[in-house]
Nucleic acid binder design. Sequence first.
DNA 1: CTAGCATGATCAC
DNA 2: TGATCCTGCTAGC
Length: 302
Amino acid sequence: MPEGHSVHRLARQLDDVFAGQVLQVSSPQGRFAAGAALLDGHELLEATAHGKQLFARFSGERILRVHLGLYGAFGFGGDQTFRGASSIGAPRRIGEKEAYDDEAPAAYDGPPAPVGQVRMRLVSAHGWADLRGPSVCEVLTIPEAEAVRWRLGPDPLGADTAAGEEEFVGRIGATGTVIAAALMNQSLIAGVGNIYRAEALFRAGLDPWMRGRDVPVPALRALWADICAMMADGVRDGRIITTRVRDRSDPEAPVWPDHAYYTYQRQGRPCLICGTPIGLAELAARKLYWCPGCQAPTRRVP
DNA sequence: CTAGCATGATCAC
DNA sequence: TGATCCTGCTAGC
């Protein structure tokens, strides 16, 4: 998926183009017809994100909750107020950047006929947004939405990073599961996905198979701070880039992805720092990438 | 044309 | 741990 940074950008963009407007909400595909009927004709008050969850609050005390899953994506279009509104969601190629139409704004004529499986379409007087392929798209009451938030760990892109740090250290530092799996558990930290997990562990020099509770607390604090910084960059850039500038050039790969990552999808290729071939393992049904040299075993699970 | 794959998560066993 | 769901692109017949 779009990891947490994409969902935060998405929330911001929805807020920019739709907040304060009455929307027509529909489900061209039909699978969200009932939910769309609940929202249709209501005003979108505010869109926010917590980790990978998107919440859009509508008048009438209804909350639209969307989770993009692996494949979900939003596309946008409209008049000049939609200029720069990029499509956000599942990339089709490694490191793909968000795409948007940079053409001079033609007169807006209303939304085009839906293409493919459009689960939900939002339409204002100025433009439209199409959602396809989400794993969740539902309408909640306010208490139901709060219950969803309650189950989530701290968000590195949340407002209170100091409180988040304490929560992160408390939760990760108490778990007996390996750190690589713990970082993907949204109830321990919300918003980290497979790329940030691999890259954060690499940058911290941590052995992925160490238990959470065996990672020294200062290392956990540094890990939290680094994740916050990387994801903030992701929000700014609309793309995940985790390598430091000095590590990016490579005669072998002159074209993008010009070493945007240290380990993600670099299995078998030499580590940018130590030259050891990057490893690939299957962990809880996801691919884990790491450098056996830079992230040497310390206190692994036996 | 089909199978396989992807930055995800849940549920049953 | 394995099966399942969501969608669209791409590699390989």
